[in-house]
Design a protein around this nucleic acid. Structure first.
Length: 399
DNA sequence: TCTGGGGTCCTAGGACCC
DNA sequence: TCTGGGGTCCTAGGACCC
């Protein structure tokens, strides 16, 4: 069948295998077959485990303690943000050789609409194998590819292809492939939704697919019902449908950090305020680098018992000024009615409602004071760019 | 020595306006 | 004076994904 007359177009979902750890160890051949993971510090969790570690049961989001209990020889490797971005961009460039329609969904995965490529380059499977070969040859990491007529099915297929493989789900095999799967395999169905669906009697994708939509709406509400109905039928959008919303700019930029030890809300206020400054500075720099301003500042506080709350305030004027972000965050912190004895595990700062700076009319009379803060920020940004992080920072962080 | 950090999206209630 | 409804913004929480 020719691509032009095809009722739908094949979608490739390409997913790097254990991306973060693969990148971290690709220049360390001695670790190739050794269990290794990124993350998993004293108070941390495993960010990404390689397949040797997964053989021991080590999984992402597992605490470092538990991972080491399962796999004593586990080697911890540091995450190299810059290298990850670099490899991600290189992989993105490889995808671009095969089709102009590439939608990166994160650093390590993408949807490719190969409609225009099949005539020139061969079947989707052939294209998938060529992509994998070029990624391996140039970046020395492996990836897996799912091929199907919809995004949702391609995504499930790539997971089944892992590691280092290809899974194709032609239309005539859709039901055989999809229906026996647990509902938890569908994109967007996490542990909570899965448990709820199981309680309602929907254990497999087939259970969903064979239930009339109105019945699903009754049980799940219109939004979830429609989404799951489409996913279960493999009709959640082919390459023709536009990506949900092209990400021109980020919607929000934030930073958070777990303390090395829990802090007391009252007694350690100074340390908390200073941590909020560090986080605000990090966020402010990224907001300015993105050429944005944001309207809402959100403070996150996690207590020792892991209860987590957020408090937000919308400013009258969007900002990219570190000092304003920090002042707002501290105001939100001081307005919390937590006992001085509360123990805090983490604080975070996020700027939301981002808009391109040049598209934001600045109301006249920008105060002298405010302009001064912003000029100081820009000077710091330039210094950081030249000399690296840690060289320049707010004076109150120096001790 | 349980449980990171970066995000997006959805829901729901209340305020406020028309 | 009473009654009604729709739309939007703000805030808080939570599910989910990588």
């Amino acid at each position: 069948m020719s691509a032009a007359s095809a009722p739908k177009t094949p979608i490739l979902h390409v997913d790097m295998d254990a991306f973060f750890v693969s990148v971290a160890i690709r220049d360390r051949p001695e670790l190739r077959d050794v269990p290794a993971a990124v993350g998993g510090g004293p108070r941390g969790v495993v960010t990404c485990a390689n397949y040797a570690a997964r053989a021991f049961g080590v999984r992402s989001a597992m605490s470092g303690v538990q991972a080491r209990r399962l796999c004593p020889p586990l080697v911890s490797v540091p995450l190299d943000h810059d290298l990850v971005s670099q490899v991600s961009a290189a992989v993105r460039e490889i995808f671009g050789r095969f089709t102009p329609s590439v939608e990166m969904v994160s650093v390590d995965e993408a949807f490719l609409d190969v409609r225009s490529a099949v005539r020139l380059l061969g079947s989707p499977v052939t294209i998938a194998e060529r992509i994998r070969a070029e990624v391996l040859a140039e970046q020395r990491i492996t990836c897996s590819v799912g091929v199907a007529m919809s995004r949702g099915v391609a995504k499930v297929a790539s997971r089944h292809a892992k590691p280092d493989g290809v899974v194709v789900v032609p239309p005539e095999e859709l039901t055989t492939f999809l229906h026996p799967l647990d509902v938890g395999e569908l994109y967007g169905v996490g542990p909570k939704a899965r448990a709820r669906l199981h309680r309602l009697g929907f254990s497999t994708v087939g259970d969903l697919a064979t239930t009339p939509l109105p019945v699903l709406v009754q049980a799940l509400g219109p939004g979830s019902a429609a989404r799951l109905h489409r996913l279960a039928h493999g009709t959640d959008g082919d390459g023709r449908s536009a990506p949900r919303r092209p990400l021109e700019t980020d919607r929000s930029i934030g930073a958070q950090e777990t303390f090395g030890r829990d802090l007391h809300a009252g007694r350690d206020r100074a340390a908390i305020v200073s941590e909020l400054l560090r986080l605000s500075a990090r966020v402010g720099r990224r907001v300015r680098a993105a050429g944005c301003v944001g309207r809402t500042v959100t403070l996150t506080v996690r207590f020792a018992d892991f209860r987590t709350i957020t408090r937000s305030r919308t400013l009258t004027q969007p900002t990219d000024v570190t000092q304003e972000v920090h002042a707002t965050a501290v105001g939100l912190y001081d307005a919390l009615s937590v006992g001085d004895d509360s123990r805090l595990r983490l604080v975070g700062v996020r700027v939301e409602g981002l808009l391109p700076r040049e598209r934001t009319p600045r109301q006249g009379m920008l105060g002298e004071r405010r302009r001064g803060w912003r000029d100081a920020d820009l000077a710091v940004d330039r210094a950081v760019e030249r000399f690296g992080k840690g060289v320049v920072g707010p004076a109150s962080l120096l001790r």
